[in-house]
Design a protein around this nucleic acid. Structure first.
Lengths: 237, 237
DNA sequence: GCGGTTAGTTGAACGTGTTCAAATTCAGCT
DNA sequence: AGCTGAATTTGAACACGTTCAACTAACCGC
């Protein structure tokens, strides 16, 4: 029941090696050809292992994406933390993190779509909403907590507590937009970020107004209810 | 380029018959066994046609879902319109339509997940956001326009114009929740509807306050930008 | 060393979505 | 009736994700 880090622990050093060899190879072909067009056979062949061996380490093709997503997040954190150091305002900090997110994802745009395709499916292991123990989601929310921690804005406690999660949901929305964004260099996504961050900043200040307290309370209660309802079936067979 | 109603026109009366026979059969097995567990072979066999024949009328298994979604919407409209007749307030009207939506979808809960699984994929023909000519989406937004038309609430023109679309997006969100909702009879979804409708009602009134005009304008400009960016590739081969 | 247990690896086989060239039906025309 | 071309129908073949029984390699206690 507790959150365990890995799906299937490799027991040997050699096993680790093989596993990451397969993952590297898979990501390489994904980047070149996209997800659908990459066959498990091609991955296995290029990695120099048997087809069955790939399935020994990754329960399905989808699980390769989860590994990819993990890696992407690590990279995002790695570039975000230094960039945040000299930023004070909530707006600047959020803007920084959001922009860097998509800088990081850039090379994978064409096959990132599949992430949502599978992620939205309730029974998919990649579903970002269910599976309480999903480490990537937790870590991602954690990053938004950092964004907020570092600012001096006067935000009520109740809102402050939910804000990391809310920003994470917001970021999922922008990712969804980005996936569909056909504009060159995804300029539209960046413009959308600029505008939404500006708006969010204003909304947060508005919501922090004592005048807004009842409505804010009601909204937050709702958010909490939704959060509770979602993480359920962590089937972790 | 113009919105054409059907993907692939059947040219004969007999063709129409075969097509709907296949669809009926498919929906029946879907309801019994779920989407993933239903094979095209099983559909063809039960319908008494060949495998290839099913593909003559439905380009892929996914297209069967689109047809299902169309039918579901028709049914929803059919029960919604009469129910709206004796309701005046925006809140009551919205509540009615939302509840009926999920009453209608109830029998299909277990296989509705696949809708989102594929719908979120940018290249999927089911993607509810792209494909300008998608008749189901248009019709669905139209229903929310009806919800608003029938009320006397004083809503500014600019907001009134975007509200049908915004409510449609809201409804998509609730559907997403419902798909994941494991509570018996999906009570949680209904509770969520009650709460969110209440909140939306308040928000709409708040946004209609002259005091809120600048923020409202900014938000609506943003919504418009997002809407413009999305519908793109209607590949209609 | 040896037996035994566990980890890792193999590739054939299966089920399923999809394609396609060929066969069949059918309506309209001469 | 016979012809023609389009609409419809067929089923074999293909490609791919996934499974699994069997095999090999590595390690551990004796």
């Amino acid at each position: 029941m507790a959150a365990m880090r890995k799906k299937k622990a490799t027991k040997t050093q050699k096993g680790d090696q093989t596993k990451s060899l397969i993952l590297e190879t898979a990501l390489e072909i994904f980047r070149e050809r996209g997800y659908e067009e990459t066959t498990m056979r091609a991955i296995a062949e290029k990695a120099g292992v048997s087809l069955g061996n790939a399935y020994y380490y990754f329960r399905s093709k989808e699980y390769l994406i989860q590994a990819f997503y993990q890696r992407l997040h690590d990279e995002h954190v790695a570039v975000s933390l230094p960039a945040l150091e000299n930023k004070d305002s909530l707006k600047a900090r959020l803007l920084t993190v959001m922009r860097l997110k998509f800088d990081t994802m850039e090379p994978y745009h064409q096959f990132a779509g599949v992430l949502f395709k599978t992620a939205a499916h309730p029974e998919s292991p990649l579903n970002p909403f269910s599976d309480e123990s999903d480490p990537v989601r937790e870590a991602s929310i954690e990053l938004f907590a950092r964004v907020i921690e570092g600012t001096k804005a006067r935000i009520p406690k109740d809102l402050r507590a939910e804000l990391p999660y809310l920003l994470w949901v917001y970021h999922v929305g922008i990712v969804l937009f980005w996936i569909h964004d056909p504009s060159p260099k995804h300029r539209r996504t960046y413009r959308l970020i600029d505008h939404t961050v500006d708006l969010l900043d204003k909304l947060i200040h508005l919501a922090s107004n004592p005048f807004m307290r009842p409505l804010r309370k009601q909204t937050l209660r709702l958010v909490e209810e939704i959060r509770e309802a979602l993480p359920d079936e962590s089937e972790e067979k």
